[in-house]
């Protein structure tokens, strides 16, 4: 199966091309630059260098969030529309699962997270087989770490935002907190592609971002309705 994978859900921009299931090429940057300007040139370059023509693609994989709202939409607008144009399936992969897979060989739980400001994180918990142990959520890191500490087992933390929460993690989990070195903290697009290869594609139109959070205006509006 020939797959194009796209991840623009956070600072990392990743593009991968798989030909017949094998990784033909991968392009990853970890810089704070505009995905909208850089994504299609990156796809174009990688596809040309790997000799993959758009009409040879069988499937498109995309990280569908959580993450930067705008970043996730750039990835989804690109993946969905390209798949629709080529009349091939598109498969969405959780942006958290994509990072979690960096810890696939860890003997214990894997906790990917993205900082969501004001003490909050987007996070979830996976076991070694990448089964979901705790559903993805938008939660106060402090509360979340209490939950993880209660497991009394080693947890591998994978996150670009590790520095923001590192002290708290160590405080709450002590020796059960395992913190790998820098290259393990962001998703690999080739892994997103490989996961997507095994997943049953859903309806293309129904693939939408997983924001894990309401827009601020809507949250406020709902609050007002409740207080009425």
């Amino acid at each position: 199966m020939n797959i194009l994978a796209i991840d623009t859900s956070n600072y990392v921009m990743g593009v991968a091309v798989l030909r017949d299931g094998a990784v033909a090429g991968e392009y990853v940057t970890n810089i704070k630059k505009n995905h909208s300007i850089r994504l299609m040139p990156a796809i174009d370059q990688l596809m040309r260098e790997t000799g993959m023509k758009p009409d040879e693609l069988d499937r498109i994989a995309v990280a569908h969030g959580p993450g930067s709202y705008t970043g996730v939409r750039i990835g989804l607008a690109t993946a969905k529309t390209m798949a629709w144009t080529l009349d091939i399936p598109v498969v969405g992969i959780s942006s958290l699962e994509a990072v979690a897979r960096q810890g696939a060989f860890f003997d214990g739980y894997v906790c990917p997270f993205f900082d969501a400001r004001r003490g909050l994180v987007y996070t979830g918990l996976y076991d070694q087989e990448m089964n979901v142990v705790k559903e993805e959520t938008n939660v106060l890191m402090e509360d979340w770490l209490e939950e993880l500490a209660a497991l009394e087992a080693p947890v591998l933390f994978v996150s670009q935002d590790l520095a923001v929460h590192q002290d708290l993690i160590v405080e709450k989990l002590g020796d059960n907190a395992v913190l790998p070195s820098a290259p393990y903290h962001f998703a690999r697009p080739s892994i997103i592609a490989a996961v997507a290869a095994d997943k049953e594609p859903g309806n293309l139109h129904e693939l939408v971002p997983n924001y894990l959070r309401l827009p601020e205006a809507e949250a406020k509006w709902l609050e007002q309705q409740r207080n009425k």
Partner: peptide, 17 residues
């Protein structure tokens, strides 16, 4: 944010074909 959806969709159609 609204423009970005259209721009990236248009680029994807143009690139795909």
């Amino acid at each position: 944010g609204a423009l970005l959806v259209g721009v990236n969709a248009a680029k994807s159609i143009a690139f795909a074909k």
